[in-house]
Design a protein around this nucleic acid. Structure first.
Lengths: 161, 161
DNA sequence: ATTTACCTTGACGCGCACGTCAATGTCCGT
DNA sequence: ACGGACATTGACGTGCGCGTCAAGGTAAAT
């Protein structure tokens, strides 16, 4: 039995990577093809090796898609702007670079703020939806209670919230 | 023949209906075609007339799609189950019908509960996402603050000095 | 060396949710 | 009774987000 990391350390081949991220291999290749994932490192024979960072990125993409409903094109824009964070860690060369980086950071910040605003808006609408659903459920319960089975007596279930 | 008013009250032709619901006419016809909207009443010449109820339904479909990300097929199932509410208003004939209706109501209630659960789950994940976005923004702010503009006068709220 | 499992790059296909003509019919004001 | 706005039903097209072969190459075990 091969262990979890025969050659690479913390890096995963596409099979495992897809399984753990709960997507298909096709999806990973597709995201790469569309520029959502940077081309991962490869083994000697050309097999893709996904880093933990890559995995995190996939999870992020999934959240943006499943939770917020963004298109992959939109998501690409976002994470491209966010990618400055990785350039931040790298040491810059001179002061001139700083103002350049700062501009990118501010752009990334803007993108983040917009995402936050969108999350807030969606959460607000969802809260409203939840209220309506609750009201709906209450109407059902009221009806059911009013037209209770003739033979049954007291002892109905309580409502949870 | 039932007299269809030439100028309907509160009813809208597809153009206005689409505009107010912020969808295209194609979308309305498509929803009807797919069984998400019951065939609306028509004018003499065949023009569709959408009732306020129809409009409400379109809004509901949009919410389920845009907010929760359901497919139209899923939504169809849901609103079919919910449709009992309109049958409730109609007076039933005998007691035997009641248990029948009650079964449908319970089904509709179940659907609603599942929707509530899903909304709650999504809201939870969105809250978590929001936290992460906030943390991200803070990191940007921290960086920007640390690498404040060199030439500018330091007039901001300064750290201990 | 061979098996076996996993990987590679094309390239075509598909379902969804409509978009977009095209040809025709209807409403309504003047 | 006519013109222009608005509607009707097909029917084909489109973009997205992958699915699904096909024809191979590679890795690790036997």
């Amino acid at each position: 039995m091969a262990g979890d990391g025969p050659q690479p350390e913390g890096y995963l081949q596409i099979g495992e990577a897809a399984a753990r991220a709960d997507v298909t291999q096709r999806t990973l290749r597709y995201y790469e093809e569309k520029g959502l994932l940077r081309p991962p490192t490869r083994m000697e024979g050309g097999f893709r090796l996904y880093s933990p960072d890559d995995m995190e990125r996939v999870r992020r993409i999934k959240e943006l898609r499943d939770l917020l409903g963004f298109s992959l094109a939109d998501i690409k824009e976002m994470i491209e702007a966010e990618d400055v964070k990785e350039q931040i860690r790298s040491h810059w060369r001179r002061d001139a670079d700083i103002s350049e980086k700062a501009a990118e950071i501010r752009r990334a910040r803007e993108v983040t703020l917009q995402q936050i605003a969108l999350v807030d808006e969606k959460m607000g609408r969802m809260a409203e939806m939840r209220r309506q659903l609750d009201a709906r459920r209450e109407r059902y319960d009221t009806w059911l209670h009013a037209n209770a089975p003739a033979g049954a007596a007291a002892g109905d279930q309580a409502d949870g919230a």
